[in-house]
Design a protein around this nucleic acid. Structure first.
Lengths: 204, 204, 204, 204
DNA sequence: AATGAATGAGCATTCATTCAT
DNA sequence: TATGAATGAATGCTCATTCAT
């Protein structure tokens, strides 16, 4: 197994452990145990427990950013893009519950470390994409001109992040349906009155 | 000083310490130091560090709930109530940053402990109030009938909670302005098209 | 037992352990074991292993300094004072072999830490006393005017410190005899030719 | 590069690292890093960290011994030889500060390991040379008959070793001057009164 | 009500060394 | 010769909690 594959394996395993026990509750020992290796050997791949966490969180955000970027570059109408980004956000959060769970719990701590960390940059990029999306919608005349893009971006992201706490995969609605409801809610918030797409058009 | 006053003083002090260092980063010693007492003596008032945290978080949520209850009982129009609840939520979060900061970071863990904790009940109550508000708006014919009250409630709460991470008191907007922007966004999401209040009416 | 007595007991015990195993070779555990207490409890009295070492070394040097000070303040002739300081130095080194053994091995490290440490000041004081002694002898006309007081001081101290490595209590000479021989050697080095005291006068 | 050259390079590098960080503070990793090789590879040349240290220390002492031997075999007068040995000692200590610094700090430990180590023998030889020198001076009638050769030897060596701690290359005196002052001091200690050489003759 | 001493379990990290390749 | 991965023992220090006084 290549060094890189090994590192990936370690990250994946750590993700599970951190999720189950929380970052503080998890011991490096636990990660090592689950990998069937010595605690000390882990340090051949990581430099600290915090480093492990950081490495863990960055990857899926990076991937998410990339998917959003690709979406923005398509020819979909802004409203549709918005709905799709929300769905994508929710999907990522659910598919990587382990990691985002950690992220949401620890992010403040993580971000405080170095203001120019990769992580901070990634988050800024994600917000920039939202900003771009809103701008496009305004230029197209479908989103209201008077929205505060920065605040709305943060509002929508907060709304999406919140699903982590309350969404239940075994509940009444599947995640796509939640995404549709949230997108509908958000679109009403940003569209000019006459432009609110009828629901079934807004969501893909 | 009465036992109760002392306990309150301890809670308040702990709140500050937890906020500054995080729950895990704070030591009982720190709390004792700041109170000018021995850490052993603290245990005359509290039963554990976790207990301290729990006691801490419940109070402002309880107070918040009460304010919301009172608001709901006024004669304001639903749209106005909604705007005011959002403002209230944001105001509480900022005024008790210490405590809510902890809460947002630790809640899952805390709640998992005992599913029938007071805390869980308080949070349920807060959601119920939102549900009641939305119901009233629908009954009044101002809110759309087809919104999913449960999902929208959670969406709005998530949106408000998010401010904790990004709101900057020294930033462009004061918290009231943020509240207004979020309320406006939310109202567009829930109101029947013809009922969206013009901005300045919506916010108190 | 008072807090202070306890601390003293800890210092004494640590001295023995450090001497036997060397500072690096000794574990805090060893010290705790020998005291019949928990490792963690030690930290109620000390703040770190290094702190333990520092506290250890300072005390006898302080005591030694004081004895030298008192000696300088007597009416003995400079040559006699010199002989007595050497004897005193050797006696301290042998009586506190544990501690000075550590000191000699670790001093560089210890001193590098903070240039204004108590330890450094103590050592400077000790050298100052030697300087004062030499000055007095020169003023009295018994020590040569052309000696470099600073260098000679260091030479004599080095000579004395060296005994730590080679002096054997079970050897041919008792420590007093060694002191006499070294004093004799040193006196010939610093006295004007005609003033070298006949041996038996020089030593007390 | 031959195995031997490689080993020499390793020793030299290790010397620098040990000097900078101390034996305990230095890691094998550091040595490997500075050599641009893997730490595992080092073990092809050395058998342990301690072995590395031992190998390191022996060489310059061996070289020093040899120079002293050669000096003793010249026709210089004993007083001159003594002055030159002191200068040689100081020069070696300064030129190989790295190694002697380690030696002075660790010798006891190292020597304790195997009492019949090469190192111990080398040190004994060095003392024997001093003894021989003193004997020659006595036979020549320039050194006093009543000195205790063994004690004086150790006194002088201690005095010289001490320079390691206090000599500062950027200080008032260059090392040669210190050597001259110490030699002068020592000569007064060992010479018959009438034989103390006038300073400038004593030193070469 | 408060103290001060003691506890004891817990844990990340380091590092010399080994060894298959 | 050299590599790189893995080992595993070692250890200083923290801290919530207890409890006799």
């Amino acid at each position: 197994m290549s060094r890189n594959a090994r590192k990936t394996e370690i990250l994946r395993t750590a993700a599970g452990v951190f999720r189950e026990k929380g970052f503080h509750g998890a011991r490096i020992q636990d990660v090592a145990d689950r990998l069937g290796m010595q605690k000390g050997s882990l340090y051949y791949y990581i430099s600290s427990k915090e480093d492990l966490l950081r490495g863990l969180v960055e990857e899926p955000i990076r991937a998410m950013n990339q998917e959003v970027r690709e979406l923005l570059d398509t020819g979909y109408a802004p409203a549709q893009k918005l709905a799709r980004v929300i769905e994508l956000h929710l999907r990522y959060f659910q598919e990587h519950r382990d990691i985002f769970g950690i992220f949401l719990r620890e992010d403040i701590e993580l971000l405080d470390q170095t203001s120019d960390s990769d992580l901070r940059a990634l988050l800024r990029t994600y917000e920039d994409y939202w900003d771009e999306l809103l701008q496009e919608g305004i230029a197209d005349g479908v989103f209201r001109e008077d929205i505060d893009r920065s605040v709305i971006t943060k509002a929508v992201i907060g709304m999406c992040n919140g699903t982590f706490t309350w969404f239940n995969p075994d509940g009444r609605y599947p995640i796509q349906e939640i995404a549709r409801l949230l997108a509908d809610f958000a679109l009403r918030g940003v569209c000019r009155e006459e432009s609110v797409p009828s629901e079934r058009i807004a969501s893909p």
